[in-house]
Design a protein around this nucleic acid. Structure first.
Lengths: 154, 154
DNA sequence: ATACGACCTCAACTTCACTTGAGGTCAAGA
DNA sequence: TCTTGACCTCAAGTGAAGTTGAGGTCGTAT
């Protein structure tokens, strides 16, 4: 039943079918369900059955992940949808606009960093007081532990 | 002995001094040493003693991390330095140029992503075949598991 | 003499996003 | 009937980059 029979066109999907059609591993689908990102009901034989819109949900999840949004945040966002419905075009607009702001910020941070690096490549100053690359976080160390203006992970 | 006595100006540093002057935690210094990023000798009482240039090494490490270079890669790079010396301005030039290329690439990826997202916010097309945001990785699923053109984590 | 702070080791825990494995169920085809 | 394949659960492992904690040592200031 890997091939889609026209008669089944609007039937719910098994976990294997979802995996095949969404491109994510079965274990990942279990995992997403455990995190509340998607939901399913069970067949008589205790197998998961997913409404077809799970595919759209997974699409949203995957795009958000490419944007660098952590799963927990995605889960939050999906929970803000009234009655837990699958995101409509309108919802997507709202969510993606918020995520775009994040992305813009991330790009801006990296760009500033690159520009600092550019200036710095020639000088090798790393140990001097003026190095723009060091200064934000390597101030004279008198003011307590870890300045960390920006998340150092991004 | 937290304050630098002029008489000690060229003495090696204890782990606590390195922590204070570099702004990283003592545990982090232990950790870096265990990963071979820095080295020390031991005092008679089995305490670590670091040559002062460890501060420059840590500076390089921290800058590289801000650039998004994983520690393992940083360790590799530091190992390519002849005779394990601390990076000179020349070395820094070489290393940072390579890392800048990475960074440029990362910025380019994010920028393309943002542009795709911009186009996509209005349309909410996520489920359509034309969505630039979905297509790279959500192809019809016929060609095996996980297209993953680009590292999805960045 | 003793208390204190800085240091030591080693193991285990943390977060994130999953994957892997062991052991078991269920329905259909040969 | 038996075997296959897809499914099930739950626990543990992965890797990155550290942090936390327990238990112990060292040296110096009071």
């Amino acid at each position: 039943m890997a091939i889609l029979d026209p008669a089944d066109i609007d039937k719910d999907l098994s976990v294997g079918e979802v995996a095949e059609r969404s491109g994510v591993a079965v274990s990942t689908i279990h995992f997403y369900e455990s995190k509340g990102l998607i939901t399913s009901w069970r067949s008589s034989g205790n197998q998961r059955r997913f409404p077809r819109d799970v595919l759209r949900r997974i699409a949203v999840i995957k795009v958000a992940q490419r944007l660098g949004v952590p799963l927990a945040t995605i889960a939050e966002a999906l929970k803000t949808l009234p009655d837990g419905r699958t995101p409509t075009a309108e919802d997507w607009k709202r969510l993606s606009a918020a995520w775009k702001a994040d992305l813009d910020e991330r790009i801006a941070v990296l760009t500033r960093l690159r520009d600092g690096l550019e200036d710095c490549i020639g000088c090798g100053c790393l140990s001097l007081g003026e190095c723009p690359l060091r200064n934000p976080w390597d101030e004279l160390s008198e003011d307590g532990p870890g300045p960390r203006l920006l998340d150092p992970r991004r």
